[in-house]
Design a binder for these strands. Structure first.
Length: 273
DNA sequence: CGGGTTACCTGACGGC
DNA sequence: TGCCGTCAGGTAACCC
């Protein structure tokens, strides 16, 4: 579900809402049965501490404390939300209760999310973080030369390639289709046959679409909400995603869709080659 | 190693 | 109304 813009929106929202750095009074584990079990020692790591900073790496959010960090991935349906009395849900996996009386819940109906603990100084070797590729908004790392070199001899479709988190992080199923539309490159093109110029267009398009989506608060298709509960607004500005059979917003021809790499993929066969 | 498929889960939606 | 099939912002574990 959430890709880089949604995760970044949630991170920024949490950072703002927790700016006064309230002390964590207690952590209540409700159910630990997500993809990988929630570490049972989470409460003792967090209680009595405060979040010194809230950062993002790829689609992960890191909540820094003085003695390590809480790591979260939202999977498809994960969310962080402040929950008032009476707003509890059976899909709440744990609550973080602050001294000021607020209660932050990690909610994840489909349970594809990840919660883990990162020991101080061990970020680079953490199993979930160590194989991640470059940040797409880091222009010094994600550029035409990088994408061109990384894609040589790769036969996978370019859409699958740019969604590979070991290459470049943060791009998921929505923004892969949207970026390739803007770049004028068909998603089925073998990555290894992209020209340098096409790589440059893909990099620029991906950075633009991610930044615009962040500015709009992300895309709310189904579950996703910002940290304050509001919907994102970028879904209104999708050119192709979820628009099968509808007219291309540029040329009017019917938007195409088929499964590539196991994921629904959208493109305009007139605008993209 | 690269590339392809399957599995993990719940809930929403459309067709009958 | 209800039942059933399909699909969903992701990723890890397999297989070849």
């Amino acid at each position: 579900m959430p890709e880089l813009p949604e995760v970044e929106t949630v991170r920024a929202g949490l950072e703002k809402l927790l700016r006064d750095r309230p002390v964590i009074q207690n952590v209540k584990l409700m159910r630990g049965d997500i993809r990988f079990p929630i570490p049972p020692e989470l409460p003792k790591r967090l209680e009595g501490r405060r979040f010194e900073a809230i950062r993002r790496r790829a689609k992960y959010i890191l909540f820094d404390t003085a003695q390590g960090a809480l790591l979260s991935h939202l999977g498809m349906t994960g969310s962080w939300r402040f929950v008032e009395a009476g707003e509890e849900d059976k899909h709440d996996h744990f609550y973080i209760e602050f001294h000021d009386g607020r209660r932050l819940a990690f909610r994840d109906p489909r349970r594809f999310g990840i919660i883990d603990w990162v020991d101080p100084g061990k970020e680079r070797e953490h199993p979930r973080l160590r194989s991640l590729g470059v940040e797409p908004l880091d222009a010094s790392a994600f550029n035409d030369e990088f994408l061109f070199q990384a894609s040589r001899k790769r036969t996978a479709p370019v859409k699958t390639f740019i969604m590979d988190q070991r290459i470049v992080v943060g791009i998921g199923n929505i923004y892969a289709s949207e970026a390739l539309f803007r770049a004028g490159v068909r998603p089925s093109r073998p990555a290894g046959r992209l020209t340098k110029a096409e790589c440059a267009r893909i990099v620029k398009a991906a950075q633009e679409v991610l930044l615009e989506a962040i500015a709009a608060g992300g895309s709310s298709i189904r579950d996703y909400r910002q940290a304050d509960g509001e919907e994102g607004g970028f879904q209104k500005r999708h050119f192709v995603y979820d628009r099968k059979g509808l007219p291309c917003r540029i040329c009017g021809s019917s938007v195409k869709s088929r499964v590539i790499g196991g994921r629904s993929t959208y493109w305009c066969s007139t605008c993209q080659s």
